[in-house]
Amino acid sequence: MTVTDTSDKAVLLSAHERAEIDAWLARYPADQRQSALLGALRAVMHEDHYLSVPKMDAVAAYLGLPPIAVYEVASFYSMYETDERAAARHSISVCTNISCMLNGADEIVAHIENKLGIRLGESTPDRKFYLKREEECLAACCGAPMMQVNHVYYTELSPEKVDSILDGLE
């Protein structure tokens, strides 16, 4: 499908984001720009920590896709945030699925909530931390309880260990 006259919407993308998207585009056949969509959204996540509608529209324009095709992908994957309130430098996901739950995940969640003064699904006012509500097993059951901060897995957690991890973040 051709989308005409959307080029001006892509101006919102930074040079860095464009470079990232171009690098992804280079890996796929020229007529399949949609293939770079996941990478493009990841690039925007890195800069903005969430996907705003104007930015998603910009990605759509840049890749020549109808905007709804971008919204569908962005809202499907839980690692993309589409709510501005989730935009924070560090996104913390504590696994609360079965193995972790049996090993004290609830205590870890309560500890982080107290420490940061926010509830699950909220971010700190300084936009440093976002405590994500994680629904699924993060596939590190052997190290339960565990959490993921940004892209890093931390296993065999205790409140003290959580403190040292979070305190060590910029």
Partner: peptide, 10 residues
């Protein structure tokens, strides 16, 4: 020829 509706979320 214009995709306006979509299935969002999962």
């Amino acid at each position: 020829g214009m995709r306006e509706l979509g299935a969002t979320g999962r």
